[in-house]
Design a protein around this nucleic acid. Sequence first.
DNA 1: ACCTGAACACCGTTCAAGT
DNA 2: ACCTGAACACCGTTCAAGT
Lengths: 254, 254
Amino acid sequence: MDERTETGLPRAVAIAWGMHEVPQRGPNRGLSHERIVAAAIEIADAQGLPAVTMQAVAKSLGFTTMSLYRYVSGKDELLRLMQDAALAVPEEADLPDDWRAALRVWAGFVREAYHDHPWVLQMPRGQISVLMPNSVRMADLGLRALRDLPLDNEEKIGVILVVSQHVTSTVELQLNLADEGEFVMSADGLDVLGQVVTPERFPDMAPVLRAGQFLETEDTPAREADDVQVEYDLGLDLIISGLEQRIARASAPE
Amino acid sequence: MDERTETGLPRAVAIAWGMHEVPQRGPNRGLSHERIVAAAIEIADAQGLPAVTMQAVAKSLGFTTMSLYRYVSGKDELLRLMQDAALAVPEEADLPDDWRAALRVWAGFVREAYHDHPWVLQMPRGQISVLMPNSVRMADLGLRALRDLPLDNEEKIGVILVVSQHVTSTVELQLNLADEGEFVMSADGLDVLGQVVTPERFPDMAPVLRAGQFLETEDTPAREADDVQVEYDLGLDLIISGLEQRIARASAPE
DNA sequence: ACCTGAACACCGTTCAAGT
DNA sequence: ACCTGAACACCGTTCAAGT
């Protein structure tokens, strides 16, 4: 489905790595992949993903819409490039020696990246390529955190995958809550909701909703955004302690 | 940003619960929220998310595009309804008594749902409302699996969140691999990639890539789709064993 | 009350033409 | 080689009009 270069690499991958030959002879009026992607990210940061149109990007650069097509095969490719560029990670990052601490620091990098560019969460993630530069960088750093653990590579990849997805889901939840927290539900609303979310149909969830854990009503205060921190820590704790167990078992079998 | 009913509930929530008064007097030519959403889902299943346009949905139902707007405030709302409807879960599902087994069964439900409707993964998830019917149902079932554990509700919510996100990330990975597996990378391609993904810059990731763990080349066989099963199990194992630890610690403190 | 037809603004993309 | 202008197909949405 995707455009590919002669090497078999997806075009976006080649571009992101700077491997796409830009002839560099002739008029070159100053447009480039980097500038286009940067402009697009700036728009997304400021006005959200829907504001990123080919026309808006071109205009912000002072060029016509069509000039972009010399650098980018289409909007999909631009989005792909934005997605990876947004997930920048400090290339020369130091990680603590203890793998638990290192994994937490790494998780923090991931969190920060999504936090800086929340619109990435709104993009189709079905297309994230494991071959894009920042994905590779992130993965490399994650593997480094786990370097001394007695796990094979596949397991390590699995771990950093689990961790990174946990982080993104937490950021996502945070944004959701901030979003839904924008409206205050009236007593009416809570009532109406209570009529469908009954303890009979939802014995376990009804009490939670009724407790207003997730809802801002006229009576209960808003759930603090920092509350998500609890879930963030919980997930990380579970994974790390699960990992400790696994290692203990492996090094002292039976 | 969202449209709300007088009760303060988002419109999509009210509709999904069937709480939106459909006057039901007069000509009623047979259109309904349910039919519209079902038609849209059918299109997404068959032709992918981009094929879901207001015109395509209307046409497949034999109505004009504009007729949809009597039921749905716009495309966003339709997408929201599709998203929730796609995550259907057996309402009368039985869960094993053992919480570990129950959690695994529950994870399987989530997995199945995404597997049946992979396009949900391509939708902005920043908008998933915790108030939508199937979200509530899923959460209820998840909480039921954990019912007997000595955790408070917030922790339990955290756990099912972590688990469900792990599952979706696994399905996502599976789809990514299937996608990237569509192209065979030439020896050239691997070479070119090797020039940027060097052991110097990516000491931990370069060997993994070189091992071709994620890539189908002319030499190495494709990574089996079922291979993702390893990551699926790993994550679930980690979480469950982390949970066991936490419980053991809680019931026998110090 | 429910649906239609015409119309509008906007967006992604093409193609041939300019310098 | 790099960019532009005109044009096209398509999409979401509005509004007034039909039954």
